[in-house]
Protein backbone atom coordinates (compact mmCIF):
# COMPACT_ATOMS: atom_id res chain seq x y z
CA UNK A 1 0.00 0.00 0.00
CA UNK A 2 1.21 3.52 -0.77
CA UNK A 3 2.74 5.58 2.00
CA UNK A 4 3.60 9.25 2.23
CA UNK A 5 7.30 9.86 2.93
CA UNK A 6 8.47 13.26 4.06
CA UNK A 7 11.37 14.19 1.75
CA UNK A 8 11.80 17.78 2.92
CA UNK A 9 10.86 19.72 6.00
CA UNK A 10 11.65 23.17 7.25
CA UNK A 11 9.26 24.46 9.88
CA UNK A 12 5.77 24.08 8.45
CA UNK A 13 7.02 23.77 4.88
CA UNK A 14 7.09 20.12 3.82
CA UNK A 15 7.23 17.90 0.75
CA UNK A 16 5.76 14.41 0.82
CA UNK A 17 6.36 11.71 -1.76
CA UNK A 18 3.55 9.18 -2.07
CA UNK A 19 5.56 6.57 -3.86
CA UNK A 20 5.55 2.92 -4.83
CA UNK A 21 2.42 0.87 -4.54
CA UNK A 22 3.23 -2.82 -4.39
CA UNK A 23 -0.44 -3.71 -3.89
CA UNK A 24 -1.74 -2.03 -7.05
CA UNK A 25 -2.76 -4.28 -9.97
CA UNK A 26 0.26 -5.05 -12.16
CA UNK A 27 -1.37 -3.80 -15.35
CA UNK A 28 -1.47 -0.23 -14.01
CA UNK A 29 1.72 1.82 -14.28
CA UNK A 30 3.19 2.75 -10.92
CA UNK A 31 3.13 6.47 -10.17
CA UNK A 32 4.50 8.88 -7.58
CA UNK A 33 2.39 11.67 -6.21
CA UNK A 34 3.86 14.62 -4.34
CA UNK A 35 2.27 16.92 -1.77
CA UNK A 36 3.69 20.33 -0.96
CA UNK A 37 2.49 21.61 2.40
CA UNK A 38 3.08 25.15 3.55
CA UNK A 39 1.36 26.24 6.75
CA UNK A 40 -2.33 25.60 6.38
CA UNK A 41 -2.32 24.92 2.66
CA UNK A 42 -1.33 21.97 0.53
CA UNK A 43 -0.85 21.37 -3.18
CA UNK A 44 -1.00 17.91 -4.72
CA UNK A 45 1.21 17.31 -7.77
CA UNK A 46 -0.08 14.84 -10.37
CA UNK A 47 -2.70 13.13 -8.17
CA UNK A 48 -2.80 9.99 -10.33
CA UNK A 49 -5.47 7.82 -11.89
CA UNK A 50 -8.93 6.75 -10.74
CA UNK A 51 -7.87 3.23 -9.72
CA UNK A 52 -5.22 4.39 -7.27
CA UNK A 53 -7.28 7.19 -5.69
CA UNK A 54 -8.12 5.24 -2.47
CA UNK A 55 -4.43 4.45 -1.90
CA UNK A 56 -3.28 8.04 -2.58
CA UNK A 57 -6.08 9.56 -0.50
CA UNK A 58 -5.33 7.24 2.39
CA UNK A 59 -1.56 7.94 2.27
CA UNK A 60 -2.12 11.69 2.06
CA UNK A 61 -4.66 11.66 4.91
CA UNK A 62 -2.18 9.84 7.15
CA UNK A 63 0.23 12.78 6.98
CA UNK A 64 -1.86 15.88 6.44
CA UNK A 65 -5.40 17.15 6.71
CA UNK A 66 -6.91 16.58 3.23
CA UNK A 67 -9.33 19.50 3.72
CA UNK A 68 -6.25 21.76 3.53
CA UNK A 69 -5.73 20.84 -0.10
CA UNK A 70 -5.95 24.12 -1.94
CA UNK A 71 -5.05 22.88 -5.35
CA UNK A 72 -3.86 20.24 -7.74
CA UNK A 73 -0.96 20.71 -10.12
CA UNK A 74 -1.39 18.65 -13.26
CA UNK A 75 1.84 18.51 -15.26
CA UNK A 76 -0.09 17.38 -18.33
CA UNK A 77 -3.26 15.61 -19.42
CA UNK A 78 -2.51 11.89 -19.24
CA UNK A 79 -4.90 9.55 -17.36
CA UNK A 80 -2.20 8.34 -14.94
CA UNK A 81 -1.67 12.01 -14.04
CA UNK A 82 -5.14 13.39 -13.53
CA UNK A 83 -8.00 10.96 -14.22
CA UNK A 84 -8.81 10.95 -10.47
CA UNK A 85 -9.75 14.64 -10.66
CA UNK A 86 -13.51 14.01 -10.23
CA UNK A 87 -12.85 12.06 -7.05
CA UNK A 88 -10.73 14.81 -5.50
CA UNK A 89 -13.46 17.28 -6.42
CA UNK A 90 -16.04 14.96 -4.89
CA UNK A 91 -14.07 15.29 -1.67
CA UNK A 92 -13.41 19.02 -2.03
CA UNK A 93 -15.57 20.72 -4.67
CA UNK A 94 -13.71 24.07 -4.55
CA UNK A 95 -10.29 22.61 -5.40
CA UNK A 96 -8.37 24.47 -8.09
CA UNK A 97 -6.50 22.60 -10.79
CA UNK A 98 -3.44 24.25 -12.34
CA UNK A 99 -2.69 22.95 -15.79
CA UNK A 100 -1.48 24.10 -19.19
CA UNK A 101 -4.02 26.31 -20.98
CA UNK A 102 -3.82 23.70 -23.72
CA UNK A 103 -5.65 21.12 -21.57
CA UNK A 104 -8.16 23.49 -19.96
CA UNK A 105 -10.99 22.21 -22.11
CA UNK A 106 -9.77 18.59 -22.20
CA UNK A 107 -9.47 17.90 -18.47
CA UNK A 108 -13.19 18.56 -17.79
CA UNK A 109 -13.70 15.16 -19.47
CA UNK A 110 -12.22 13.78 -16.22
CA UNK A 111 -14.32 16.13 -14.05
CA UNK A 112 -14.59 19.70 -12.84
CA UNK A 113 -16.13 22.80 -14.29
CA UNK A 114 -14.92 26.06 -15.74
CA UNK A 115 -14.13 27.53 -12.32
CA UNK A 116 -12.01 24.47 -11.38
CA UNK A 117 -9.21 25.18 -13.83
CA UNK A 118 -6.47 27.78 -13.62
CA UNK A 119 -4.76 27.77 -17.00
CA UNK A 120 -0.98 28.11 -17.00
CA UNK A 121 0.28 30.20 -19.93
CA UNK A 122 3.09 28.77 -22.09
CA UNK A 123 5.91 30.76 -20.38
CA UNK A 124 4.80 29.45 -16.97
CA UNK A 125 3.56 31.24 -13.86
CA UNK A 126 3.90 31.61 -10.13
CA UNK A 127 1.63 29.49 -7.96
CA UNK A 128 1.22 30.79 -4.44
CA UNK A 129 0.83 28.36 -1.60
CA UNK A 130 0.57 30.14 1.72
CA UNK A 131 3.60 32.40 1.70
CA UNK A 132 5.44 30.18 -0.75
CA UNK A 133 5.96 31.05 -4.42
CA UNK A 134 6.15 27.93 -6.53
CA UNK A 135 7.14 28.22 -10.20
CA UNK A 136 5.42 26.38 -13.04
CA UNK A 137 8.40 25.69 -15.32
CA UNK A 138 7.71 25.10 -19.04
CA UNK A 139 8.57 21.60 -20.23
CA UNK A 140 6.51 21.53 -23.41
CA UNK A 141 6.89 18.45 -25.62
CA UNK A 142 8.51 16.58 -22.70
CA UNK A 143 6.47 14.60 -23.41
CA UNK A 144 3.14 16.39 -23.72
CA UNK A 145 2.71 19.39 -26.01
CA UNK A 146 1.46 21.40 -23.04
CA UNK A 147 3.67 20.34 -20.15
CA UNK A 148 4.88 21.96 -16.93
CA UNK A 149 7.18 21.07 -14.07
CA UNK A 150 6.91 22.61 -10.61
CA UNK A 151 9.88 24.23 -8.89
CA UNK A 152 10.05 25.10 -5.23
CA UNK A 153 12.96 27.59 -4.91
CA UNK A 154 12.93 27.42 -1.14
CA UNK A 155 13.11 23.63 -0.86
CA UNK A 156 15.14 23.45 -4.11
CA UNK A 157 12.93 20.65 -5.35
CA UNK A 158 11.89 20.26 -8.98
CA UNK A 159 8.85 18.09 -9.65
CA UNK A 160 9.73 16.94 -13.16
CA UNK A 161 6.67 14.94 -14.24
CA UNK A 162 7.69 12.28 -16.76
CA UNK A 163 11.22 13.65 -17.14
CA UNK A 164 13.49 11.48 -15.00
CA UNK A 165 10.91 8.70 -14.92
CA UNK A 166 12.15 5.13 -14.69
CA UNK A 167 10.11 1.97 -15.08
CA UNK A 168 11.67 0.02 -12.26
CA UNK A 169 11.35 -3.71 -11.57
CA UNK A 170 9.21 -4.62 -8.56
CA UNK A 171 12.23 -5.34 -6.35
CA UNK A 172 13.75 -1.84 -6.93
CA UNK A 173 11.61 -0.14 -4.34
CA UNK A 174 14.02 2.44 -2.88
CA UNK A 175 12.67 5.98 -2.69
CA UNK A 176 15.94 7.55 -3.90
CA UNK A 177 18.32 6.64 -6.71
CA UNK A 178 21.17 4.76 -5.06
CA UNK A 179 23.31 3.74 -8.00
CA UNK A 180 22.83 6.15 -10.91
CA UNK A 181 24.36 4.01 -13.63
CA UNK A 182 22.25 0.98 -12.63
CA UNK A 183 19.11 3.08 -12.24
CA UNK A 184 19.35 4.98 -15.50
CA UNK A 185 19.12 1.76 -17.55
CA UNK A 186 15.47 1.62 -16.50
CA UNK A 187 14.92 5.21 -17.66
CA UNK A 188 16.55 5.00 -21.09
CA UNK A 189 13.87 3.32 -23.20
CA UNK A 190 11.17 5.44 -21.58
CA UNK A 191 12.91 8.74 -22.39
CA UNK A 192 13.85 7.68 -25.92
CA UNK A 193 10.26 6.84 -26.75
CA UNK A 194 8.20 9.26 -24.68
CA UNK A 195 10.26 12.41 -25.14
CA UNK A 196 9.55 13.47 -28.70
CA UNK A 197 11.55 16.64 -29.24
CA UNK A 198 15.33 16.93 -29.12
CA UNK A 199 15.07 20.73 -29.37
CA UNK A 200 12.68 20.91 -26.38
CA UNK A 201 14.94 18.55 -24.44
CA UNK A 202 18.09 20.69 -25.04
CA UNK A 203 16.20 23.85 -24.10
CA UNK A 204 14.92 22.24 -20.87
CA UNK A 205 18.39 20.91 -19.94
CA UNK A 206 19.94 24.37 -20.42
CA UNK A 207 17.32 26.10 -18.29
CA UNK A 208 17.24 23.50 -15.56
CA UNK A 209 21.07 23.35 -15.32
CA UNK A 210 21.03 26.97 -14.19
CA UNK A 211 18.55 26.27 -11.39
CA UNK A 212 19.47 25.30 -7.86
CA UNK A 213 18.05 21.81 -7.47
CA UNK A 214 18.67 19.50 -4.53
CA UNK A 215 16.06 16.96 -5.58
CA UNK A 216 14.52 16.11 -8.93
CA UNK A 217 11.31 14.23 -8.24
CA UNK A 218 9.73 12.39 -11.18
CA UNK A 219 6.24 10.92 -11.53
CA UNK A 220 7.54 7.36 -12.01
CA UNK A 221 10.52 5.67 -10.35
CA UNK A 222 13.06 6.92 -7.83
CA UNK A 223 14.06 10.44 -6.78
CA UNK A 224 17.37 11.99 -7.89
CA UNK A 225 19.20 13.94 -5.23
CA UNK A 226 22.52 15.72 -4.80
CA UNK A 227 25.00 15.04 -7.60
CA UNK A 228 22.58 12.65 -9.32
CA UNK A 229 20.45 15.64 -10.36
CA UNK A 230 23.12 17.13 -12.62
CA UNK A 231 24.17 13.61 -13.63
CA UNK A 232 20.64 13.03 -14.86
CA UNK A 233 20.48 16.37 -16.71
CA UNK A 234 23.78 15.61 -18.49
CA UNK A 235 22.62 12.10 -19.35
CA UNK A 236 19.32 13.42 -20.71
CA UNK A 237 21.06 16.16 -22.72
CA UNK A 238 23.17 13.53 -24.46
CA UNK A 239 20.34 11.06 -25.04
CA UNK A 240 18.86 10.66 -28.50
CA UNK A 241 15.11 11.06 -28.04
CA UNK A 242 12.08 10.63 -30.27
CA UNK A 243 13.16 7.22 -31.53
CA UNK A 244 10.92 4.23 -31.97
CA UNK A 245 13.51 1.57 -31.08
CA UNK A 246 17.11 1.24 -30.06
Amino acid sequence: MKQAHCIYQEDDHRWFAIARDASKPGYIIDTNEYVVVNGDEALLCDPGGIEIFPAVFSALSAECDPTRLAGIFSSHQDPDIISSLALWLEFKPDLKCYTSWLWQSFLPHFGGQDSTFIPIPDPGMTIRLGGLELQAIPAHYLHSSGNFHLYDPKAKILFSGDVGAALLPADHNGLFVEDFSRHIRHAEAFHKRWMGSDRAKRDWCERVSRMEIDMLVPQHGAIYQGGDVQRFINWFAALEVGVLRG
Binding site: M1, D65, P66, L87, F91
Partner: peptide, 22 residues
Protein backbone atom coordinates in the same frame (compact mmCIF):
# COMPACT_ATOMS: atom_id res chain seq x y z
CA UNK B 1 -17.44 7.74 -7.68
CA UNK B 2 -19.18 7.06 -4.35
CA UNK B 3 -17.88 3.47 -4.28
CA UNK B 4 -14.26 4.59 -4.87
CA UNK B 5 -14.60 7.37 -2.30
CA UNK B 6 -16.06 4.87 0.18
CA UNK B 7 -13.02 2.65 -0.39
CA UNK B 8 -10.72 5.65 0.23
CA UNK B 9 -12.60 6.42 3.46
CA UNK B 10 -12.41 2.76 4.50
CA UNK B 11 -8.62 2.84 4.08
CA UNK B 12 -8.14 6.23 5.76
CA UNK B 13 -10.69 5.87 8.56
CA UNK B 14 -13.83 7.84 9.30
CA UNK B 15 -11.96 10.34 11.42
CA UNK B 16 -10.27 12.06 8.46
CA UNK B 17 -11.58 15.65 8.24
CA UNK B 18 -14.00 16.28 5.42
CA UNK B 19 -14.87 12.68 4.59
CA UNK B 20 -18.32 12.70 6.21
CA UNK B 21 -19.27 15.85 4.29
CA UNK B 22 -17.97 14.32 1.07
Amino acid sequence: TSAILAEAIRLSGDGVPGVREA
